[in-house]
Every structure is written in structure tokens, then in C-alpha cells.
């Protein structure tokens, strides 16, 4: 069997694939955080909870109503996104003028409530969700085995990431969004409904998290606490990339997933901490983050 650095290629590429998939989730989640941060200037601590809600929604929709994966792929983000808009409208809006630390704490409280309620209903043991029929099995690429579903996750995540980038950078709606990021008061004066835009932006960011949750449902164990740990990793990813650019958060997310995968091959003990170590190094060398603007 062919080897690279004393590691069989099949093992290496297998871990690279896993890393790429984790990276796809990091990218989707940090993208959502970046979109919300852009207009609302808050860090959404409930992002992990919304990711979890997306996955849980998919499982529950299937178990109770028999709704299949493809419908859930649209329905779950819609449900969770609506919940996000309600939270923005009834809670976050009330403290929009206070120090941003308070909105961080508020979303932390929201995360505790969502996670606590669902833990009481569903327990913390994982629920299984079958991989949709079309994606069972995989293809042998010669140097590795590629399960179809994993390929789909990467493609779907990349398409959504690209779509988001396109919408924000190239469309009229995106230009409003960017203008709002620069100066929301002036934009309000131009007659654009900023509060509505804020609600929709928050809802959209939440939808991205829920979409990631649906993608995750068939491959990860679905339970009410699945959002907590991934959120902290995504925070580190955000610090590494900086909130400067959409492309930056997508790229950093994927790169961190791959680095994590490689660490699993060469030094497994450090695989859960490597992203945090990268964060420390980046902060020491380039405090604004790889893609961030010096504030």
C-alpha cells in the first residue's frame, strides 16, 4: 500500500475527507455568525442551539409526520428561521441600543433555555437518522472509498456558501445588507426598512445554522447538547478568520476542518485542541485575524 509520511494514503485521505466535512459545517456555521454580526453587531451565542434544532427538527419531522429528508432540508430551516425571527423581534430588538455584551448574554440565556427544554423532552442520548435512500453506498476512487452522502454534504455546503456570498456581494439585497453594515442610520434615512432587514438577516443566519443541522442529522448523533461544543470551535474559527469577509469565514472554516483531520492522523491526542492552538498563534501574530481588518 502506498504511503505518505509513513501513513497509508487511504487513512490519510479518509481523515482528510472527514476533516473536509467537519470544515463544511464550520464554514456554514461561521458564515451564519458573520452574516448576523455584520448587521446586528452581535455574536449569536444561540447559534449552536439553532444548529441542534435543525437536526432535531429533521428527526422529529420524520418520526412523527414521516416527512422525508428533502422536504426537511427546506422545512426545518424555515421553522427554525421563523423561531429566530421571533427571538430577534421579541428579545434582541429590545436591547439593540445597549452594549453588545448584553445581546451576547441574552443569546446565551436563549441557548440555555432551548437546550434545557429539549434535554428534558428527548434526553441526551443520541437519536439516529437514516441516510436518505439515494445516498446509500459510495464510490471507490482507487485511493479511498467515498460515501455518497459525505460527498453530498460537501457539495451542498459549498453551494449554499457560494450562494450566500453571491447574494451578499452581487445582488441588490446584498448591497442593502452591506450598506446597513456600514451605516444603518443613513440607510434608514434613504427610506429602507432597516428593522425589517435586521429581522430577516437574523432569520437568514439562523436558517444557515439549521440547514447545517439538517445536513448533520444522518451522520452525527442527534441530541440536544450537540450544538454546544461545535459552537465554541466555530467561535475559534471566527477569531482565526476575523469577521472581515464572507469568503474569509468560508475558507477558514474549511481549512480548520482539514487541519483538524490531519492532526487526527499525525497526533490524535491534539485533535480536539488544535484549532484553539491555531487561534492562539494567529492572535499572537496577527490579532485582527487572517481576513480581518485592523480595528
Amino acid at each position: 500500500m502506498s504511503m505518505i509520511f509513513g501513513v497509508p494514503i487511504a487513512v490519510l485521505s479518509g481523515q482528510l475527507l472527514l476533516g473536509l466535512i467537519n470544515g463544511a459545517f464550520y464554514a456554514l456555521l461561521s458564515l451564519g455568525l458573520a452574516v448576523i454580526f455584520g448587521l446586528l453587531k452581535i455574536i449569536n451565542f444561540a447559534h449552536g442551539a439553532f444548529y441542534m434544532l435543525g437536526a432535531l427538527c429533521t428527526v422529529v419531522l420524520f418520526n412523527t409526520l414521516g416527512i422525508n429528508y428533502w422536504v426537511a432540508l427546506f422545512l426545518a430551516p424555515l421553522i427554525v428561521g421563523t423561531l429566530g425571527i421571533l427571538i430577534e423581534y421579541f428579545l434582541l430588538r429590545k436591547i439593540a441600543n445597549e452594549d453588545h455584551i448584553y445581546s451576547l448574554l441574552l443569546t446565551f440565556g436563549v441557548a440555555l433555555v432551548i437546550q434545557g427544554v429539549l434535554t428534558n423532552i428527548y434526553g441526551v442520548s443520541g437519536m439516529r437518522y437514516a441516510i436518505p435512500e439515494v445516498f446509500r453506498g459510495g464510490v471507490n476512487l482507487g485511493f479511498m472509498f467515498l460515501p455518497y452522502y459525505r460527498a453530498w454534504v460537501i457539495v451542498a455546503a459549498l453551494v449554499v456558501c457560494f450562494g450566500t456570498w453571491f447574494m451578499i456581494e452581487k445582488t441588490k439585497l446584498g448591497s442593502y445588507l452591506r450598506a446597513g453594515t456600514e451605516n444603518s442610520k443613513l440607510m434608514q434615512a434613504f427610506g429602507i426598512n432597516v428593522p425589517l432587514l435586521v429581522s430577516l438577516t437574523y432569520g437568514f443566519g439562523v436558517m444557515l445554522a439549521a440547514f447545517a443541522g439538517v445536513l448533520a442529522a444522518p451522520i452525527y448523533s442527534v441530541n440536544p447538547v450537540m450544538g454546544g461544543n461545535i459552537l465554541i470551535i466555530v467561535f475559534a474559527v471566527v477569531v482565526i478568520g476575523g469577521m472581515g469577509s464572507i469568503v474569509g469565514s468560508i475558507f477558514t472554516g474549511l481549512a480548520m476542518g482539514i487541519i483538524e483531520g490531519l492532526t487526527k492522523v499525525f497526533y490524535p491526542e491534539a485533535s480536539s485542541t488544535v484549532i484553539f492552538l491555531v487561534m492562539v498563534i494567529v492572535l499572537l501574530v496577527r490579532p485582527a485575524g487572517l481576513f480581518g481588518k485592523e480595528a
Binding site: 452581535i42 455574536i43 453588545h100 461544543n229 465554541i232 484553539f276 492572535l283
Partner: peptide
């Protein structure tokens, strides 16, 4: 030394990540 390089919510996220480490 690491965390005071950023302010505000970044500071919160960095301390959280370091504590997770």
C-alpha cells in the same frame, strides 16, 4: 497575553476558546 489583543465580544470568544483548550 493572548486575549487582551482583542476587545469586546472578541475578547469573550477568545477567553471561551482558551478555556475550552
Amino acid at each position: 497575553v493572548v486575549a487582551i489583543r482583542r476587545q469586546g465580544i472578541y475578547f469573550a470568544m477568545i477567553t471561551l476558546a482558551l478555556a475550552q483548550l
